[in-house]
Simulated assay, not measured.
Amino acid sequence: MIFKPSPLSRITVDDQELVPDKKSCRKIGPCGVGKKALYLNSFFIDRKYYVPFQAIQRVFKRVAMSQGGFSGKGMFASMAYLVVEFDHGKQKQCNFKHESEVDDLLALLAREQPQIKRVSAQAEQRLAAREAQRAEEERSRPTLSAAAQQEVDELQRAIDYLEQKPELSDQLSKSAKRKRAYQCTSPSYRWAAMAITILGLAALAYGIFSFLHHGTFAIYFTLFGLAAIFTFAGFSVLPTAKNNKKSVLQYDEQAQQHMEAYLSKYPAFPVPVRYAHPIVLKRMQRVIIQGRAQTAQQALEIVKADLKALNADVQVSQEEHDEVVAIKPMFLNAAYE
């Protein structure tokens, strides 16, 4: 192995087991999940470090919101990190380009390493308090009318139908996020990023040339070129064959077409195709159960109003954040219609 990963924990894996484990690990973003260890990235190098599973206490997601937050505005919008707690106190934070990759990695850990906790200690306390609050709310909720209960049951049938093919809802959510991010990124960002990247390539080329000819400032030009290239390639701001208006709109259109074809077999689906996601339906259920609406149509309008009220200035739980990030772009792209 050319680049053998370095251990972060006191516990290590024997090289004879480490080499094949890293080679066969499931790569998700810059990290990887093997049979023996979790492989973590440095700022520039993927899967440079590792922590054996027996040394890990917690693995969880941390999200930093930049200006614009839930609106999707700003160059970076939300920045997702994977946080690994090991050796009873140490932490390693890994930056990810796409938040969905963090979710995929945590879902894989839930299946293959269920003994590892997937929330922070603070989140664990909040979840316990929230469960107690929900139990109290359930005891104090008004009894649903027969009509309202029928609406809740119908929404549950729709949720069950969508969850038979979860990839369709995931595609709908991802395409909406991609479309929203593209529309909210100023074209000037893309062309500025391209210009700086070209300068970085030129600096890198000059740095190598200067280094070969024993130039004094060769190392500085080389480092600047590498930094510019890695930085803007990592932020996915550059216009590419896949990151352009035609490709983004086509991906979103295909996602809706696939969902429409699937829902054509379901009579009178309770929401439009563009909002066909289990999270939307579950939030509608909660609205009816809380007594805020009597019908699915009324519940959908209240869900829209709730999403509109959420912005970067509103503090929410991690659970609420994950729901909002998954579905709000779909409503923003459709102007809440």
Rank of each mutant, 00 (worst) to 15 (best):
I2Y: 14
S6V: 07
S6D: 01
R10K: 08
I11R: 09
V13E: 06
D14C: 11
D14G: 13
D15I: 03
Q16L: 15
E17R: 12
L18N: 10
C25E: 09
K27Y: 08
G29Y: 11
G34R: 00
L38I: 03
L40R: 03
P52W: 02
F53I: 02
A55T: 02
Q57A: 13
F76I: 13
V83T: 09
E85V: 13
G89L: 07
N95I: 04
E99S: 14
S100L: 07
L105P: 08
L109S: 01
Q113S: 04
K117P: 05
R118T: 06
S120D: 03
A121M: 13
A121W: 11
A128E: 10
A132G: 05
R139E: 11
P142T: 13
E151F: 07
E154W: 10
E154H: 07
D160S: 13
K165I: 00
S169H: 02
L172R: 00
S173I: 04
K174W: 12
K174T: 06
K179L: 09
A181Y: 09
Q183F: 03
T185W: 02
S186F: 10
T197K: 12
L201I: 12
A202R: 03
A203T: 12
A203S: 15
A205Q: 08
Y206W: 11
Y206S: 08
I208C: 14
I208H: 05
H213G: 05
H214I: 05
G215Q: 07
A218S: 04
Y220S: 10
L226E: 01
I229R: 06
A233P: 04
G234Q: 05
V237H: 07
N244S: 12
V248C: 09
L249H: 15
Q257G: 03
H258E: 11
K265S: 12
V273Y: 03
V280N: 03
K282A: 15
G291P: 08
A296Y: 00
Q298K: 10
L300V: 01
L300A: 06
L300R: 00
E301V: 08
E301G: 12
V303L: 10
V303R: 07
K304Q: 04
L307F: 05
A309E: 03
Q315I: 08
Q315C: 02
H321M: 15
H321G: 15
V324C: 14
F331Q: 09
